[in-house]
Each structure stands twice: as structure tokens, then as C-alpha cells.
Nucleic acid binder design. Structure first.
Lengths: 211, 211
DNA sequence: TACAATTTGTGAAATCTCGCACGACCCGCG
DNA sequence: CGCGGGTCGTGCGAGATTTCACAAATTGTA
């Protein structure tokens, strides 16, 4: 593989895909230019064209991109032609929200199981799934050949769960735990900490003078 | 202002702060070197030193950084010396999770109100707050001088709420809606879409051959 | 056909970001 | 004091990323 595509390019593809899926639902719309897409996404059109050119020539001069065709190509590129099974670890409020979220459907993923170690929660149902005992996490994940997991556990146990998931064959983890994890070999970790995002923004705000 | 600090540098400061707060709780630990911090965060020590040097000389050769001192400096830099009031718009499962999340406390933020437009939800309580009618959103936000908001509403109404929040004086929005928003003038928007993050990662995975 | 209006894909330039490597400095110890 | 071990702050070059800008291709019109 001589041609390694930059992570930052990969990171934008889902945004293109998301907006294209929105566009394709608009009546009388078949094609979209890089300018239109750029306008909607708030980035430059040249960037979109260059990003896409890493994977082939999907557009047509004078016309732009055929939306459905580009959606199909991006879906292939991102390995979304089949639905990925995903497990959620941690059945707190956030785990509950994730398990109940309908937005995974049709975008390439579906939650297949929810785990927690709280005896109070085990056996209860969330989003149509019965909460399972974390003790069975490794076996269940390995058994089902799961490659993706979402972590909504307290920071204190996040590393331990990460290691267990990796041992069971998980290759990608989306972590909501407010802690930097040590990524096991061959495992990709993506983070989401609302407080970190708020803190990044508060830098740009003017503090209200305390009266 | 001759010295503009890159956004990407600002983006890392909260991560430093988070890890330092973890370190300061460890017994017998007073200082930390850039190497230790880098090791824990999975980045290079030079980057940490260079990032911090944008704001001053906080370390001491041969010793490293005094953890509590650095925490205090970062807290000032990020404007976290006072708690920012934040409103949550959208009281679905995610809004519920956010309103109930204890992690905002002590990290610079607190949720002061939750809004929804569903009559079934208005008046109910989540995380110690009574859900208010979205119709009162603008007035309430303007009244309280709120500058930050979290969006956990469906994509279809996210832009409308964004514009209303901006009109009411909000300057920073953390959006969980799966859509690219058109940022009103002077408003910073940060996004969090779990599906986008999963899709970024699925690119790097090997699809399981369908049997 | 001829031509104007668009829009892509891309080489080259510009800009941004990172990491090396080293002088300066600090601490503890004999 | 002098020295060894450790660490910071930073100039500089390497590398990554973005933007510019234009030839080539397509469409629509007359």
C-alpha cells in the first residue's frame, strides 16, 4: 500500500456522507457541486475535491457529483456496506441514552448488547435490550465477534474495561469516560468528553464580571 | 493582539488540565515533568512544553511543573475561574443524561436549566431541574445572561434553536444533533455525533466477511 | 458548430503543525 | 564548590495540511 490516506481526511468523510444523505432527500436534487457541499459544511470546496480525489474521480466537470453515487462510494470506503454490531458498556444515564438512540440505524451500526456491573441494573431493559452482567463481557464479545464498543463507564474503570474489550477482540472504542486511555495494541480509541469541549470553547468567551 | 494562539493548542489544554487534576490526587506527587504528562496522554513531551510556552514559563528546569500551580494557570487561561452556567435544550434521553451528569461540577460548568417543547415533558424533573417550555428559551437565556448551551434536539430543529440561542446572547454551543449547523456571527459551535466517530473508526476496521 | 458558463482534479505555493536537539537552568550530593 | 542527572523553553527544519489557480471536461444555448 503505497498510498496512505491521512487520518484527517478520513475524519471528514462521515461529515460529507451525513450532509449528502440530507441532500439526497431534497426533492428534485440529483447532483451537488463541491461548492454547495462546502457551503453547507462550512469548509472550502477545494478541500472536499482534494479529499475525494484520494479515492477516485467521482465527479463530472460542469455538473458536480451525483449524490447517490457519491453516497454509495463513501459508504464503501468507510466500510459501512454492512451494519457493525456495537456493544455499550455502562448502563448509566448515558448508556441508557445510547442504547435507546435510533440514530445508529441506517448509518451503519446497531447496538447488540448493554453491560453493567450493578446488580440493581442487570436484567433490566433499556432500548429493547436486557442489561447483562459485565462479568460476561469478554465471553459475549468474543463469542459474537464484536469489533466495536462504546464506553459509558466511570473514569476509574475505563482502562480496565478497555483492556478487557481488547482482549476479547474489540478493535475500536468510542469512550465517553473523562480520562485518557492507554490504547492496547491494534485498538483505535475515539474520545468524547463534553466537559473538554465546553472548556475549549470557554477560552474564547469573555467571563462575566462577578458583581 | 500580536500573538494569536492556534485553536489546536487551545484544544489540548483541557486534556492537560484533566490529566493534571488526576495527578494531583495521587499521594506524594507534587510535580510532573512534560515527559510524564506526555506518556499518559499519548503525545510528545515537546508538544506539551511548546503548547504551554505560548502562555508563559510555568516549569522549572530539572524539576518539571508544579502540578497545582499549572492547574491554576490553565484554569485561568481557559476562563474556568468561575463556573459557567449552561442550558440544555432537548430533554430526551441524552438531555436527561446531561442534566443528571455530575461531571460538570468542579470542572467549570453547571447546568442551570433544561428546555423541551413536548408538553408531556414540561414540568417533569430531571437531575434536580424542572423541564421548562422551549417557548421561554430566549427570554430565560437572555434574562440570566447565559453564554453557553448544549443542544440535544433532533437534527430538524437544531438550526432553529441555534439561531434562537444566538439571538438570546449565547456565544458557544455544544451540539449533539447529527447535522452541520450554520454558525451565527460570533457563535462558536462544537460538535459531537457518536455515529460520525464510529464511522471514522470503521474505515480502519476489516469488515467481517458475510457468511 | 461555436461559445459561454460551470465545475472537476490537481500541481504548486502557502500555511500550519510537529518534533528534534541543544543551551540554559535546577537540584542533590560529595 | 563542582559535578552529574534531569528538565525546560525554543530555534529550526521537516512534514502535514490547506489553499490557490488553471487546464480540461461538460452542459446548454443558439
Amino acid at each position: 500500500m503505497e498510498n496512505q490516506i491521512p487520518d484527517i481526511v478520513i475524519g471528514r468523510l462521515p461529515l460529507y456522507l451525513r450532509e449528502l444523505n440530507r441532500m439526497v432527500q431534497e426533492p428534485d436534487r440529483v447532483t451537488a457541486s463541491s461548492h454547495e457541499l462546502a457551503e453547507r459544511l462550512g469548509i472550502s470546496s477545494a478541500q472536499i475535491r482534494k479529499d475525494l480525489s484520494h479515492f477516485g474521480e467521482f465527479g463530472k466537470q460542469g455538473t458536480g457529483y451525483h449524490i447517490q453515487y457519491l453516497i454509495d462510494r463513501l459508504t464503501e470506503i468507510l466500510h459501512l456496506t454492512q451494519e457493525w454490531p456495537v456493544v455499550v458498556v455502562g448502563a448509566g444515564f448515558l448508556g441508557h441514552a445510547l442504547a435507546s438512540y435510533r440514530g445508529f440505524q441506517h448509518r451503519g451500526f446497531h447496538i447488540t448488547a448493554v453491560f453493567d456491573n450493578d446488580p440493581e441494573k442487570i436484567g433490566k431493559e433499556v432500548g429493547g435490550l436486557v442489561i447483562q452482567d459485565s462479568a460476561n463481557l469478554e465471553a459475549a464479545v468474543r463469542e459474537a465477534g464484536i469489533q466495536m464498543a462504546i464506553l459509558s463507564v466511570p473514569a476509574a474503570v475505563a482502562q480496565d474495561i478497555t483492556d478487557k474489550l481488547a482482549a476479547a477482540g474489540v478493535k475500536a472504542i468510542l469512550s465517553y469516560a473523562p480520562v485518557s486511555l492507554n490504547p492496547p495494541d491494534g485498538v483505535i480509541i475515539s474520545y468524547s468528553d463534553p466537559v473538554v469541549q465546553l472548556q475549549q470553547m470557554s477560552y474564547y468567551l469573555t467571563p462575566t464580571p462577578t458583581p
